[in-house]
Design a protein around this nucleic acid. Sequence first.
DNA 1: AAAGTATTTAGATATTTGACTAAATAACTA
DNA 2: TAGTTATTTAGTCAAATATCTAAATACTTT
Lengths: 84, 84
Amino acid sequence: MNPLFKALNDPTRREILEILKDKDLNAGEIADHFDISKPSISHHLDLLKRASLITGTKEGQFINYSINTTVMDDLLQWILKLKS
Amino acid sequence: MNPLFKALNDPTRREILEILKDKDLNAGEIADHFDISKPSISHHLDLLKRASLITGTKEGQFINYSINTTVMDDLLQWILKLKS
DNA sequence: AAAGTATTTAGATATTTGACTAAATAACTA
DNA sequence: TAGTTATTTAGTCAAATATCTAAATACTTT
């Protein structure tokens, strides 16, 4: 659970998830959405990957990122447990 | 959303929520569950309060804390939006 | 009023985090 | 193969975080 909460505890990373919800994008396209350097975005992507919230697959020169929402099921469970 | 994610991004604070799920407790009782100083627990309680995840009501010398799960509805919505 | 208990506030310190620039790696293109 | 593009890794720095001890505040009890 820890890497998941950690990954979600940043507005930039949450926005990355929101833009990936609509469409897979490569690292450069993701970086273009933000006013932050590419290395910083790369770091955010790394944290999201560590939490399994995204997956990156190399397509030639590019790395295409997709969201993976299945990890959030644990989070949903945890919240619902607290609410019951 | 930010203070919510921030508050949840700590194992001690998540455990505080879990023990408050079962039963309201005062600050001292909460502190007794952990191997951490009372001032540190007080700080964690403050962050949880800022996120409206708990409420504290003074009962004489004690402050009784209760969980408030309604704030998590926004979080649930956010997660479900990403999953749809 | 003085002493004791419960909790928070203040101040200090070590660790973590998010950002940057510069350099490294990997793949494509001429 | 040399140059260009995409992305990550390395190293640095400032700001944020989690912890501690000591002191302050607030209530209760004697």
